[in-house]
Design a protein around this nucleic acid. Structure first.
Lengths: 223, 223
DNA sequence: CAGCAATATGTCACTAAGTGACAATATAGC
DNA sequence: GCTATATTGTCACTTAGTGACATATTGCTG
């Protein structure tokens, strides 16, 4: 497998013998979940690559084909909410505010039990990233990728170039505030706060993005 | 040496045999500069810990006492501008706007030749961090620490608690935009753009901080 | 400056992380 | 089923990073 394949679509054309990208992503996610479980149970330092590999039935050599280092193993888990957010923004109609868009989605979403245990893993890793430097780097790198995705989305919405410094500033600021809110929510949930009493976190995110972009992002725009 | 010593002042009281913190910081900075030079010349992967250690006349065992891993070696260099920015904000009079404060400082600053070569190292590492994942983590972690410093500074200025979510959102957004501008300026300088034609980057930062905090940070405030 | 206590350093041994090479096996398309 | 290509596991290896311990260095005090 080309270890960069997961991030480069042109190199992933379907050839005989090449696994689909979806399949590779599923394997990556399975590894990530097992890594997260082991990191939570015994700490990052005490978890070996061999243990992670064994947990998913792969050799450690193959593990390092899927992830460039140990802490990166947890990135797919850490990326869950951010990727969901990005996917939502990609579907964001121009004539709708961000807050309305997110609230509409929140009202219509369904949640299966498998997804809920996955959410738990996300929360645990987000919290653990606060005190484990290696996980912190994984968390920050994950957010770095989200920011790059937001650059494209904001450029499109604002009808500007992705190279535009303003676009990049807005994407960076938006990513930062969404990250802080995610961290805040995760810490609260980990501390036992009931999700209902957290209030409207998606609305909070939408407003924070609006503020952090100086009002440039978040309102309906011309079609 | 206590490897966490550099970041914990209570553990660094002056005892017989314990080196001063300034001395430890100087050694860290010397290591960081040499690491940066080697990373630039031959790449991160091809640079061994032994080489970095030899370049500063230390054993590799001691190198790992000063830095938790190889890429962290470059953090003091990467942190230079951010730490300067933080120091400036710590001296920021309440009755002055951020832009005026930064501009006044820019007009009065002096620059020695050693500092200029150091600036070059900062620029090179900032640019290299765009394509070397390990350096990217070092850069993001450095900015994470800057953000934590800004939380304290903003809390003080806004007369709010550092735990206040708004304070944290402002600090995160401010750090993000300063980072993007730093990256932008470094890339331009690396590409040969004349510093004079870059315009007023400090003013740009001040305005970006003001925008990213929704106007909450940047204006004069009540004393 | 000498003495002392505490810390810092280097050497050594070691484990784990991570990489390259290559043969065997698996995958996807026709 | 066949073929071409990719993927995987084994093996050997280097490097990163850690613990233990003896020696050297540092900072304080008289």
């Amino acid at each position: 497998m080309g270890s960069d394949g997961a991030n480069d679509t042109t190199k992933n054309e379907r050839k005989p013998g090449r696994m689909s990208e979806q399949r590779q992503q599923r394997i990556r996610l399975e590894i990530s979940r097992e890594a997260a479980r082991l990191f939570w149970e015994q700490g990052v330092a005490a978890t070996t690559g061999e243990q992670i590999a064994a947990a998913v039935g792969l050799s450690v050599r193959t593990l390092w084909r899927y992830f460039r280092n140990k802490e990166s193993c947890v990135e797919p888990v850490l990326a869950q909410d951010g990727e969901e957010f990005v996917a939502l923004l990609r579907r964001w109609p121009r004539d709708v505010s961000l807050e309305d868009h997110l609230m509409e989605w929140a009202m219509n979403r369904t949640k299966d039990p498998d997804q809920q245990s996955f959410d738990q893993a996300v929360i645990k890793m987000t919290v653990l990233a606060e005190k484990e430097p290696d996980l912190r780097t994984a968390w920050l790198m994950t957010n770095d990728r989200i920011e790059r995705a937001l650059v494209e989305i904001f450029a499109d919405r604002l009808r500007r170039s992705p190279d535009d410094i303003e676009v990049r500033l807005h994407a960076a600021a938006a990513t930062a505030v969404v990250r802080v809110i995610s961290e805040d929510v995760s810490a609260a949930l980990m501390a036992g706060v009931d999700r209902a009493s957290l209030g409207n976190t998606l609305g909070q995110m939408a407003r924070a993005v609006h503020t952090a972009t100086g009002g440039a992002v978040g309102d309906p725009v011309d079609p």
